[in-house]
Design a protein around this nucleic acid. Structure first.
Lengths: 164, 164
DNA sequence: GTCTGGTATGTTATAACATAACATATTGGA
DNA sequence: TCCAATATGTTATGTTATAACATACCAGAC
């Protein structure tokens, strides 16, 4: 139900799906944009813009400047392929390709993993609450920071760590 | 049910309430912290950290450096008097003094006004969704950007603007 | 073919947001 | 008085993001 820390097969499927959507909608998934997409897709945890810049720079003779990376990120975010996490200023792959809204993000404070979950009930509650005061929602940010399942267990049972 | 763009009476009531909580809990509401509290309280829309710095600087002979303002802001946020809006990096008064969690923030993209609403259903849905995948929440950010009631009407009926 | 207009990228500089590290002052007890 | 804790001041720098303008690339018109 989520993304980030995918297996390599998942990774390829996901990139392929983005390619298909771009093709179907005449969106230009250029080499640069594709490269940024791959970087984000392969990352274990959401990447900051400057991590993207560093990785792009390492793959080239000359280092890339911030606007180059930010424009590629903006493209990916604008079309719903990548989500920008407001509370950490980081970018993660969006698992719900094709939907034009985002679910809630569960962000692990220990390992950095971010998972996106959709819950129709959440959308309903948000819409209802906004309507109650005559507010017209345009964009929603729902981010929960805490401990993911694995890290929660690791913290509760620290003796499980090998070698100390 | 909300805050920001209070009347002057609301403003004083709110500051007084913070004072009382500080007194009751032996928290030091120093002149600096109080000044920042007032700035945020009086602002029509959430203030960025550097807006706070500028206003502090104007009220003194010498300009204040960022850490001074950030420390005061951190104090106010840590004790739940002020909320930091992640999606805009701005600070707004918290209306739900005494509760140690935040409701959802409705942020107007047109006038900047931010209102905080509590909804137990929202908390329930978030908790339930997190529990479903074994996630332990520590902090939640729920921010909805859009148009507030007044701005929604203004946009729908632009002929209402005087003088063109 | 080349002109033109749109889109994407490169380049330079700077704006906006935030904190590390260390110095000084203030306060309230032992 | 001295100490320790807390708060603030100061300097420098780190981090995130964008403005403004130059260049490259590509598709269709002529």
């Amino acid at each position: 139900m989520t993304r980030t820390a995918k297996t390599s097969g998942d990774h390829r499927d996901w990139v392929k799906k983005v390619e298909d959507i771009c093709e179907a909608n005449a969106l230009q998934l250029t080499p640069l944009r594709r490269q940024v997409l791959e970087l984000i897709s392969r990352a274990k945890a959401p990447l900051g813009a400057y991590a993207v810049i560093d990785q792009l720079s390492q793959s080239r003779a000359k280092s890339v400047a911030p606007p180059t990376a930010y424009r590629a990120l903006d493209f990916l975010v604008d079309h719903g392929f990548v989500v920008k996490i407001a509370s950490t200023n980081a970018y993660a792959p969006c698992d719900h390709l094709g939907h034009h809204h985002h679910g809630m993000l569960l962000i692990c404070n220990r390992c950095g993993r971010a998972d996106e979950i959709e819950n129709p009930k959440l959308d309903a509650v948000l819409a209802e609450t906004a309507a109650r005061i005559g507010f017209r929602p345009q964009r929603q940010v729902v981010e929960i920071e805490g401990l993911c399942g694995a890290c929660g267990e690791a913290v509760a049972a620290p003796q499980a760590l090998p070698n100390g």
